[in-house]
Every structure is written in structure tokens, then in C-alpha cells.
């Protein structure tokens, strides 16, 4: 049983690791990942975002079928790795030490 809609079979390999519902899960996954793993996700999702939006917009955002929801979570993980890949060249923000900022409220998709 695949996690993503059949149209996105090319991304299925990323789904088990990156289809994460909440920001704390995605934040933790980013910090547990290598640059190689994040770049791979980034490079695979980037050219597919427009197609992912087109698929998602077939449904109301508040009642997405499960495979479409996973697709949205995958875009959210792309967002999560964008700073490590494009700016920091690592999972951590430089000079941040042990400071934390927890996401405590998010829209539910």
C-alpha cells in the first residue's frame, strides 16, 4: 500500500521518512538527517511542487484523503529542509547553541 497518490510514485521512496504530520517531527527529522538525505529530498520535490499543488487543489484543504495529506506533509518537509540546503549547509542554524523555540499551535491538515 503506497503512502502517496499513484501520480507521485516517483516520490514514494521519500514518503516513509518525510511524510510527517507535525513541525516538531519534521524539525527532529531534519536534525537527524545528513546533508545528502536533505539534498536528495529537496532536489526531488522542487520540480514537482506545481504538480503537487494541482493534485491537492482537487480536494478541500480541510478534508484531504490520506494519500493527498501525505503529499502535503512532503511539501512541508521540503520547506523544513530548505534552509539547511540553501543557506546553512547543515541541519543546524549557526550560533544557536541550545536555544529552542517550540511550535505549540499549527493548523491541522
Amino acid at each position: 500500500m503506497s503512502l502517496l497518490p499513484p501520480e507521485f510514485a516517483d516520490l514514494e521512496g521519500f514518503a516513509p521518512r518525510w511524510c510527517l504530520r507535525t513541525e516538531p517531527e519534521r524539525w527532529a527529522q531534519r536534525h537527524a538527517s545528513s546533508m545528502g538525505e536533505m539534498r536528495e529530498l529537496y532536489d526531488a520535490v522542487f520540480p514537482r511542487v506545481e504538480a503537487m499543488y494541482a493534485y491537492l487543489d482537487r480536494f478541500p484543504l480541510d478534508s484531504l484523503p490520506e494519500d493527498a495529506r501525505n503529499l502535503l506533509y512532503l511539501v512541508h518537509s521540503f520547506v523544513m529542509v530548505s534552509f539547511p540546503v540553501e543557506v546553512w549547509d547543515g541541519p543546524r542554524i549557526p550560533d544557536v547553541g541550545d536555544a529552542t523555540l517550540d511550535r505549540v499551535a499549527s493548523p491541522i491538515f
Binding site: L56, V96, R103
Partner: peptide, 27 residues
């Protein structure tokens, strides 16, 4: 948000601002 693109632009904002705020926090 009315579309997936709007939802993701909001997520992108929340994620980007956190990156910047943590820099301020530690300073």
C-alpha cells in the same frame, strides 16, 4: 488558506521566521 499553495506559503513563513528568531534568541 483556500489552496495548497496558500497553505504552504504560510508554512514557509512560519519556518523561515523560526530560523531567524532562534538566531536572536541565542544572542
Amino acid at each position: 488558506p483556500r489552496t495548497a499553495a496558500e497553505a504552504v506559503a504560510q508554512e514557509m513563513t512560519a519556518v523561515s521566521l523560526k530560523e531567524f528568531a532562534l538566531q536572536d534568541d541565542s544572542l
